[in-house]
């Protein structure tokens, strides 16, 4: 069964129709990208899936259960890591567990257990300001993971990082999502990133935004950086470019 299903979602703000009849599915363990230019309604779609906005029409299903407009089920991660500067890394990652009503002690223990897997060994007691951008994003991902263990919603999570850090984060992410069995919905405007990471790419285009095409990337995972240098990769890129009119 689908992990996550977006079914005929439309969103209007007054007379302004932002999204029309958007449908997509995310299978367990899959990474699906939503690729579109700025202002096409990616973030709106994102807010609908996380439950912060109730769509004018359509539904969001998590494990077959209707979660439309009810936050608290699917968490997300943004370009901005949103680690609270006044909480240590440990206590930042523990937030979703504390909100769920777990005690401070059990929450911290759960975080400590996962720190090494997320490459955050020995930094649990540090302040966010003391970490590099890549590490902060990893901490933000751990927080997201502790909230909803099997599905992650990522909105351009790596776009603020420098190129080198970004590509090492891509490799790390593909690796960890296989390890912890994370299904990922990934929102981006970066074609290379989408092709490199995704099993499928949904192109969000037009005004109001709608899914105009779905492209399946058949290259098996895990992929390494060399995939980006192949003829196949360029072929995918040509296809995406054409569709986006870029």
């Amino acid at each position: 069964m689908e992990k996550l299903k977006v079914d005929g979602v439309s969103v209007s703000f007054g007379d302004n129709e932002v999204l029309r009849d958007v449908s997509l599915t995310l299978m367990p363990g899959e990474l699906v990208s939503i690729l579109g230019v700025s202002g096409v309604g990616k973030t709106t779609l994102f807010n609908v899936i996380s439950g912060l906005i109730r769509p004018s029409a359509g539904r969001v299903l998590l494990d077959g259960q209707d979660v439309t407009g009810s936050p608290g089920r699917i968490s997300y991660m943004l370009q901005k890591d949103m680690l609270l500067p006044y909480r240590t890394i440990e206590d930042n990652c523990a937030l979703p567990l504390l909100i769920r009503g777990e005690s401070k002690r059990t929450a911290r223990e759960a975080v400590r257990e996962k720190l090494p897997e997320f490459g955050l060994q020995g930094v649990g007691r540090k302040w966010p300001a003391q970490l590099s951008g890549g590490m902060r994003q990893r901490a933000a991902l751990l927080r997201t993971y502790l909230f909803s263990k099997d599905v992650a919603l990522l909105d351009e999570p790596f776009s603020a990082l420098d190129t080198l850090t970004k590509s090492s984060m891509h490799r790390w992410y593909l690796d960890i999502m296989d390890k912890i069995k994370l299904s990922t919905l990934f929102i981006t405007h970066d074609m290379d990133e989408a092709i490199l990471l995704s099993d499928r790419i949904c192109l969000l285009t037009g005004r109001p935004g709608t899914i105009s095409r779905e492209i399946v990337i058949t290259e098996p995972r895990p992929r390494d950086g060399d995939f980006a240098l192949t003829e196949e990769f360029l072929e995918y890129k040509r296809l995406v470019k054409e569709e986006l009119g870029a």
Partner: peptide
């Protein structure tokens, strides 16, 4: 207080009291 952070906590199902305790109060210190 950072509205994005408040939204994030909301998406995690935080109550108003929790948002106050974890975000508003420490931000105002």
């Amino acid at each position: 207080a950072d509205t994005d952070a408040i939204d994030l906590l909301k998406s995690m199902g935080a109550s108003r009291t929790q948002i106050f305790r974890y975000i508003k109060l420490p931000s105002a210190l």
